[in-house]
């Protein structure tokens, strides 16, 4: 995964922080790694995510009026496909397995930690999308090949077949284990 491979579309990261100075500093630190958007409020973050494809959101937790947690809840309602990295003021040292976000970073963020976190999330997102595609596609093929079409509806697997997700993903699911970069 070369950082400056410009032949392929690069992932996009959205930086959300009410302090413009902080957001701009992060943006410069991420240069060359991905396409970067910066916004300075929770509301602006939601507008951007609604309008533009956004793969990774770096979300400041404590913002006035609409907090990072409020944005997170709104994203869950929208079934947002991307990854959310929460930027917090404290580091309680917890793992993120049962947290409602995909990762968290503690202020102040240095350049390398920031880039590593965003890189990791884009890799996970890539695997997740691929993995989901293959898993759905292979089930579809098996079912299509083995079960005559008129029997599918009575068949337990046939019901599952009908309900297979189409590009959506389960945020709380066990995708993380695939996601570690090789």
């Amino acid at each position: 995964m070369g950082e400056s491979d410009s032949s392929q579309p690069r992932p996009t990261a959205l930086i959300v922080d009410d302090e413009k100075e902080v957001a701009d500093a992060y943006a410069l630190r991420l240069r060359g790694l991905c396409e970067i958007e910066t916004v300075y409020s929770g509301r602006a973050a939601l507008e951007t995510i609604d309008d533009e494809e956004t793969d990774v959101v770096l979300l400041d937790r404590h913002m006035p009026s609409m907090s990072g947690d409020d944005v997170l809840a709104a994203l869950a309602d929208r079934e947002y496909y991307g990854r959310v990295v929460m930027v917090t003021a404290i580091d309680p040292g917890f793992d993120v397995l049962d947290m409602p976000f995909d990762d968290y970073l503690c202020k102040p963020l240095d350049r390398e930690d920031l880039r590593a976190a965003v890189r990791q999330q884009t890799v996970i997102l890539g695997y997740e999308t691929l993995g989901e595609y293959f898993s759905v596609e292979s089930k579809r093929r098996v079912i299509a090949a083995e079960v005559p079409a008129d029997e599918r509806d009575q068949h337990a697997a046939g019901k599952q077949f009908a309900e297979l997700p189409d590009g959506s993903r389960d945020r709380s699911g066990g995708c993380r284990s695939w996601g570690q970069p090789p």
Binding site: A89, F94, M99, P100
Partner: peptide, 23 residues
């Protein structure tokens, strides 16, 4: 305050508070 760091609070509550964004 902050809740996440407070050793006197049971860890299950601290974890939940961190997940809920409470400090």
């Amino acid at each position: 305050q902050p809740l996440g760091d407070a050793a006197a609070v049971p860890e299950a509550i601290r974890r939940a508070a961190f997940a809920d964004g409470l400090q």
